[in-house]
Design a protein around this nucleic acid. Sequence first.
DNA 1: GGTGAAATCTACCTAGG
DNA 2: CCTAGGTAGATTTCACC
Lengths: 157, 157
Amino acid sequence: MQKNSIELDETDRALLTALQKNAYATGQELSDMLNLSASQIGRRRQRLEEAGLIMGYRARLDPARLGLDVQAFVQVQLARHGSDEGASFTRLLSTRPEIISAWTMTGEADYLLRVFCPDLQTLNRLIHEVLLVHRSVSRVHSQIVMDQPKGDAPLPV
Amino acid sequence: MQKNSIELDETDRALLTALQKNAYATGQELSDMLNLSASQIGRRRQRLEEAGLIMGYRARLDPARLGLDVQAFVQVQLARHGSDEGASFTRLLSTRPEIISAWTMTGEADYLLRVFCPDLQTLNRLIHEVLLVHRSVSRVHSQIVMDQPKGDAPLPV
DNA sequence: GGTGAAATCTACCTAGG
DNA sequence: CCTAGGTAGATTTCACC
């Protein structure tokens, strides 16, 4: 098992920020940016990966170009708060590819879902034929995303 | 300028899904997964990048291991809805690294912010000393994330 | 779809504090 | 003894066939 936390110096933070912006930044490019030899960049990078700080590398796609024109946040309230209902609802989440992310919040046992759909009709079908018919869902409120003034900034390391 | 949309076949979709899971998947690995030669994988990949479907590649970090233990969604309502107020608030967003993403929704001119902070105190300071004192902010409501039952699934291509 | 040159990564080695 | 920098073998990518 990895260590829970490791000491990060300024170079580590700069490296993490750079890799959050471009995972394909080459050792030489990073070397120039951070004033450190390419071999040390590789060594630090490996250390950060092994420590679990870097969980992986992903391609970022353009939803609009994929035809995913409707983006929404859906708040779901469960009728009862037993662990049974939660587990059942969590299973439902995993079966729906349109639901990209789901979070539970403090206070009430309700969920916030982030959803991508090709059109409004698909979103409405998801809400009415999937979420609202689930036995423990009591209320659903959805808000369509208009614009994204700030998107996917790097984590503040 | 790139084309607004291109035709995607099943292999393209599988490739996009694979790259969303692992940006460092090698041509040979993808070749085995998709039953296509490595050189064709590279060619398709290049086409998808040039078409703008793939916007980039990013490292994904573990917030907890970075000491970002508090994650929240903050809803902000602006007092007035002029373009001036919006622009001023958008500028504020760009100055705060704790705010990872921001969206505007249909209906009211309010913003949903996704925030990562090291502790509750930092979150409260952000809310009270940064957001609430901004001249056009009228109301702020924040919810702390407890758990993430589904996180960062690939876009449904 | 395949091949070869160019670039990049990674492990090992050497030097300095 | 630990951290930084350099070098060579192995992998991978990319332009061309």
